[in-house]
Simulated assay, not measured.
Amino acid sequence: MNAKPISSDTSPPAEDARKPRSDGEQSRVRLLQAAMRLFGEQGFSKTSTREIAQAANANVAAISYYFGDKAGLYQACFTAVCTPAADNIAQFDQPHFTLRQSLDGFYRQMITPLLMGGDADVLLRLFYREMLEPTGIWQQEIENNIKPEHLALVGVLCRHLGVPKPNDSMHRLAYAISAMCVQMMIGRDIVAAITPHMMSSPQAIADWAQHLTAFAEALVNAEKTKLQQGKA
């Protein structure tokens, strides 16, 4: 799950969704922000369009105008924050990258949601809710983003380890590398209770990611040793 920042807008609320484009875009952004928060807190089925419009200080008709219906608004929440898989993959899958550069780029794009300040909680809750009460969007996220990025990481590992084609060992290694960063996301409450300083700022999160790069490199080197011993 990778994300781009949620646009924040503090301009005065628009009264009418059909006002000039600048006011209309402000209304649209506020609707997205309110919808992300409410969908994340309550789920899709328990959140009404009237409730979203009231939270966004917008006319309920604006939801139909910009998004078609509640389902369209829900889809737009994910579209607004999800970075295309190709952009994420480009950060770690380059033929001239060293292993460390690839791992560093992989974690850099993974921690993007955690660097969004207050928006991070909103975004993560939205995805957690979708996982708990799936509407089909989480499966789309897996197919369109998570799967291609995983396969790209497997390809990087195969290249650096001299493995001709993906196998279960390469997939397991890729899952393990990803899991270390996933822990930062799903374990935020645990970290906050035990070592809050480790995720207290963007710099602290970036420092953690740098350590993950070193840990992941050690995992890859351990797999390399295992492969070499198997060939001996």
Score class of each variant (00 low, 15 high):
E149V: 07
E51N: 04
K46G: 01
W138P: 00
D168G: 13
Y175Q: 13
R159G: 07
Q94W: 08
L73Y: 01
F44D: 00
I137R: 02
L132Y: 08
D23R: 14
L153E: 04
L123N: 09
K226H: 15
D104W: 10
E223A: 14
D168H: 14
D93A: 14
Q33G: 08
S22F: 12
V81S: 02
A209V: 03
N59Q: 06
G187Y: 09
K4N: 10
D121A: 10
G68L: 05
I63P: 03
V29M: 10
L157H: 06
R159Y: 05
T195E: 15
Y128M: 05
F39C: 00
H150V: 11
A222I: 12
A174V: 07
I63L: 03
C181Q: 12
C77R: 00
S178A: 14
K19R: 11
Q210W: 08
P5C: 03
L219M: 14
I52D: 00
L124S: 06
I186A: 10
K224M: 12
I190H: 13
A216C: 08
N145D: 13
L173C: 09
V29Y: 01
P95N: 03
G136C: 02
F127C: 08
P95T: 03
I52H: 00
L124A: 07
Q139I: 04
D189F: 10
S27L: 10
Y74F: 13
A222M: 15
V122P: 01
N2G: 12
A90T: 05
M110C: 12
A152M: 05
A17S: 09
G105C: 07
C158H: 05
R21C: 04
V154L: 04
F92W: 07
Y128Q: 05
K19Q: 14
L73C: 01
S64L: 09
L32E: 02
S27D: 04
A61G: 09
G230Q: 15
Q139H: 09
V163S: 07
S102A: 15
A80R: 06
R21I: 11
C77P: 05
V154I: 12
A218K: 15
V154Y: 04
A76Y: 01
T83H: 04
A206L: 12
E217P: 08
V182A: 13
D207I: 08
D93W: 05
I142A: 07
G68N: 03
N145S: 15
D207L: 10
A17F: 13
A174D: 06
A152I: 06
M184K: 04
G24V: 03
V220I: 09
Q54H: 03
E130G: 02
M185S: 10
A3G: 12
E217F: 09
A86R: 11
K226L: 15
G105T: 06
M199P: 04
L132A: 15
E41K: 08
S45I: 02
